[in-house]
């Protein structure tokens, strides 16, 4: 709208805080995400300690596929960093390459997840079967939604959003950094989810 609105520190860091706005914003957002997943992990612990039996993840879940997925996500985190580094080195083409890879990894993750889910549905292993299955679907489902959200953002930054590079390169680079922070967080959540759900023994 009115071109006169000038939000300071949209792009450069505020000297006394050392942050630009979006970066502080995303850190705050991630803090709330920590509380969200923290609550779910705490619920897991509480339900597990209170339960008389608990399934062993590796027996009913496909831990091999999940292992592959772990590497896919870690890989995507690496390419995400590289895409940001590419912008820092003023190389848009490289950025597009790495960002494209990141998005591809996201798709791969979701496809694999989809295969896993389909198998569970087929065997009637639904949330109503046990608390373990319930928490499995809830946590991976919520995590999956986060992946989808991240991919929409990354896809936008790769496609139409990248036009900003021509006009405001610094701001665009910031955006990639911020999207990257979020993406690493999503990755990190998975790194906690994987052993918790797939590897921990039952009781």
């Amino acid at each position: 709208m009115s071109a006169h609105i000038e939000i300071p520190y949209n792009m450069d860091e505020r000297p006394d805080t050392g942050l630009y706005n979006a970066k502080l914003g995303v850190w705050l957002f991630l803090a709330s995400e920590v509380m969200l997943f923290g609550a779910l992990f705490s619920s897991y612990v509480l339900l597990r300690t209170g339960a008389s039996t608990w399934e062993a993840g590796h027996l009913i879940l496909n831990w091999k596929l999940a292992m592959v997925n772990t590497f896919v996500l870690i890989g995507s985190s690496v390419t995400m960093v590289m895409s940001w580094a590419a912008l820092k080195m003023n190389n848009l083409a490289k950025f597009k390459l790495y960002m494209g890879l990141t998005v591809l990894c996201g798709i791969a993750f979701l496809v694999i997840k989809g295969i896993e889910y389909a198998a569970k549905f087929e065997h009637g292993l639904l949330p109503n079967q046990s608390t373990f299955m319930a928490i499995y679907f809830t946590m991976t489902g919520l995590h999956g939604l986060h992946v989808i959200g991240g991919m929409i953002v990354n896809g936008y930054l790769l496609g139409p959003g990248s036009k900003m590079w021509a006009t405001e390169p610094q701001r665009f680079t910031n955006r990639i950094e911020v999207a990257g922070l979020y993406w690493h967080f999503v990755d990190l959540v998975w790194i906690f989810l994987f052993p918790t759900l797939y590897l921990l023994p039952g009781k």
Partner: peptide, 25 residues
């Protein structure tokens, strides 16, 4: 708001699962 609300969001999702997907959280 930022730090206290998310646990209720988690709880809300779990109660939704209990009501809609028949889980037993």
């Amino acid at each position: 708001l930022l730090l206290a609300f998310p646990p209720l969001e988690a709880a809300g999702v779990m109660q939704l699962m209990d009501r809609l997907a028949g889980s037993s959280f």
